[in-house]
Write a protein that binds this DNA or RNA. Structure first.
Lengths: 193, 193, 193, 193
DNA sequence: CATGAATGAGACTTCATTCAT
DNA sequence: GATGAATGAAGTCTCATTCAT
């Protein structure tokens, strides 16, 4: 029962997702061929097609599985009294920072394959999610410079997450620093109102 | 000026660059085929090869031609007394903002094709340029949060440039707003030191 | 009869045949995949292989099960005194018309997939049957034009059967009309002798 | 100028069409792969794609090039006073017989790949042509049996053409015989009116 | 300056089939 | 009686690139 060949039970689907995400993030979606994924897993290309209908299906499944926390965050925020208070917005940022930290490779993929994302069906979905988040956080009728601050707050967290690779510092510390800057930005956007 | 069909002199090379940049920015580098470029120009693929050695050569030429102002900015900043004063850093940001505004499509391309950029020889070149800029602007030995602020300042300008498409406001105004936020960020990074 | 879900007893084999014939006739043999058949039946491909050795086996079984009446007709005609009288030939046509009417989809399949039939082992079998029928009906040593009449008689019945879909008239009436024309043709072939 | 490698000038497109028609007619459309066509021509698959956009494009081009005479016949018949007299209908049959004789392989292909034809864009085109021909020839308001006669007349000519392979007689003689039977059928359809 | 013709590599995808469970 | 997982072969098609003319 302890199986002869290692880690080959009912987890092939999962293994495909893991390898695919790794390669997609590393080389980009188009430059990663199914042959490559299959070879790395030591299965045939056809095996991939047993588990996923198309190449796009693989990435869709990754988004579906990994971005649920963000979905839930948005839902939660939507249910709060609108417009959000500054305190609430900070809470949103805090939770968002955590949610993004939970799927760094996916966000790295998104950021590095924006051109591709636009053609993928999932791209539209994600874009709308982001817009809703921006909508929740930004000061609707404030001056343009404050709107930019809010957008910048979100992007700072993304950037903070991505650049932990190129920074020599601890990922978690970088995340906290980025969150702090984001908080600052959003606070300023409120004060000046 | 006396030619029969307008704008078709010895400028084919230029026209190829224009169309290529447009398509690369719109669809991504890998998804844009030379056939597509050639068709849009109503020439044959072989004609492209008369002007450029390879596909990569086309994009390299674009970077070489369009990013000179940024190059010069860095050179200029390098010659100033180090480390830069806050006032100088602001001047760098100002100039950088203008330089980037001069080649928005190229930056859009870079941002949306990061995965590709990494494989392209030009990618490394650009990356180093950005790092030098960051190096010039950031407060070397300050706390992590200030370093993030400096990086964020640069990214805010990029983001500001890119999101002018999705914002309803005037591009130039957006640019100014982004520049302002960037200035703020960098100033804060200095104060707290 | 007391089963929970209707018509699902030990009749899976039958159900496979039904769906397969339907799809083969509609889309052609090669364009119909086992996946498609399995999906429509809500079973797995592997299940098909429990009931049939190969894809070709499915179509062979259909011919074996459905063309028995035609087989018997030929056997019966073979036992009559040769060469057949005009009256007997008419009887053969009448019976053939009925037999064909009993397996219209199969004939539609044959007519529309002749290229495929030639590669299928069953193709040769069916071809020989048809040749024997032609041999029974045609006026061996008559002029060429009469031979054509006899062949045409058989084909008219086939055509009559197939074109009932595209005609607005009642299938049974069309069949009778086709039979009548066929009778005429064969009668003429006899007279002129 | 007599060229070193035999028959390779500007005629590749033509050669592709020839080989393709031969193989399509012999093995069917789906069972004939582009690899097969390319190999027989001693070129690469990619070369086929230089001359034709898709596999379907190859067969479309064949129909366009070879069925022009039939097109012209229909146009000509349409310009005659309607409804056609018996004499005119006979003339149509005569010309049709000749036109079909000029592209026997194509008609063989059509007859043997009806299932495929239905999916091909060209299928609809050809079907409409045939319907217009039937419309020109058949006795609109006569009894059903006469309508069948008219349809049968056309099909007899097709059948006559196809079965020349399996008959031992001379193709041209068979064609004449089929034409004669078709004439008879159409004449009968008129008399009884 | 540019084209017409072709290539070789490789992409995604589908298929009939197998076999342990 | 049937499934889940996988395979190997083959399919259509696209791409960057080359070269004689």
């Amino acid at each position: 029962m302890s199986s002869s060949s290692p880690q080959r039970r009912g987890n092939t689907r999962q293994r495909i997702q893991d390898v695919a995400l790794e390669l997609f993030a590393e080389q980009g979606y188009e430059k990663t061929s199914l042959r490559e994924i299959a070879e790395r897993l030591e299965v045939t290309k056809a095996a991939l097609y047993y588990h996923f209908k198309t190449k796009e299906d693989i990435i869709i499944s990754l988004f579906e599985d990994l971005t649920r926390p963000i979905d839930e965050l948005i839902e939660w925020a939507d249910e709060q009294p609108q417009p959000l208070t500054l305190e609430m917005k900070k809470e949103v940022l805090r939770r968002y920072s955590e949610a993004v930290a939970g799927c760094v490779p996916l966000f790295r993929f998104m950021q590095e394959n924006q051109a591709t994302m636009r053609e993928l069906s999932i791209g539209e979905t994600m874009k709308q999610r982001l817009f809703r988040l921006v909508g929740l956080v930004r000061t609707e009728d404030g001056p343009l410079v404050d709107q930019v601050r809010c957008v910048s707050a979100l992007f700072t967290m993304h950037a903070g997450m991505m650049f932990l690779q190129h920074m020599d510092s601890d990922p978690e510390q970088t995340r906290q620093a980025a969150l702090e800057v984001a908080m600052d930005l959003i606070t300023q956007a409120h004060h000046e109102k």
